[in-house]
């Protein structure tokens, strides 16, 4: 897994690079803004990029506009945005660019190397990844009559972790449940959201999208 980092804080770049290398992710380039990243990418295209949102020159939403430009230029590139802001509006904007192969995680998650690695793996696979914080906000906000209302508390937790890009094993570990049980919950979620007939990979994506759309 080859990844490039784009963040204007050298301190943070260095921390994340060391973290990723510790879990077997190869960091092939570091840039302080999107323009520099584009230049680096001309030589060796990585599997995924990690982007900050607030970067030079205007320190506003360069990461999001950069994500759109990168997706347009490289449709198969995984784009993981690591943001300081737990803003659903940002996450939604990013998913509108994707939704496949984009991820929105809070920077706070860098204390969990495995979580970052999993999320990178997911976006490279073409799945969406959304931070749990954002998801719980969306749950609070979603409209009244939604198929999500029929999900049990446990199923919601599973769906949230799924959206964060966790594998079934990771979800099981997190909830202290067996993989079989998790698979059962996921099947129930797909059934309640009317997604039984779709191919397995797509269903995960569609399930996450289903409630993001119902919440938006």
């Amino acid at each position: 897994m080859r990844v490039m980092l784009c963040d204007d804080s050298a301190l943070f770049r260095r921390g994340v690079a060391l973290l990723l290398e510790g879990v077997g992710v190869e960091v092939t380039g570091q840039a302080r803004d999107v323009a520099e990243l584009m230049t680096l990418m001309r030589g060796h295209l990585p599997d995924a990029v990690i982007l900050d949102i607030r970067m030079p020159p205007t320190f506003t939403d360069e990461g999001l506009t950069g994500a759109a430009a990168l997706r347009a230029a490289h449709p198969r590139l995984g784009v993981l945005v690591l943001s300081t802001y737990a803003e659903t509006a940002y996450a939604q904007r990013l998913l509108e660019i994707g939704p496949r192969g984009v991820g929105y995680l809070l920077k706070d998650r860098v204390d969990d190397a495995a979580a970052i690695r999993d999320a990178l793996a997911r976006v490279i696979e073409g799945e969406p990844v959304v931070d749990g914080e954002i998801i719980s906000r969306l749950f609070a906000r979603r409209k009244a009559a939604s198929p999500l209302d029929r999900l049990t508390e446990r199923e919601r937790s599973v769906l949230t972790l799924m959206a964060e890009g966790r594998s079934n094993q990771a979800i099981g570990r997190r909830l202290h449940l067996g993989v079989k049980t998790i698979e059962g919950h996921i099947a129930a979620i797909f059934a309640k959201l009317g997604l039984e007939s779709a191919p397995d990979d797509n269903r995960r994506v569609l399930a996450v999208l289903a409630w993001i759309q119902s919440a938006a």
């Binding site: 921390g15 973290l19 300081t84 920077k107 860098v110 204390d111 969990d112 190397a113």
Partner: peptide, 20 residues
Amino acid sequence: HDGAQQRLLALAATLGRLNA
């Protein structure tokens, strides 16, 4: 955002490495 927050985030990354 540029100062304390980035420093704390770098610390978070270090903790992540330590954990790993």
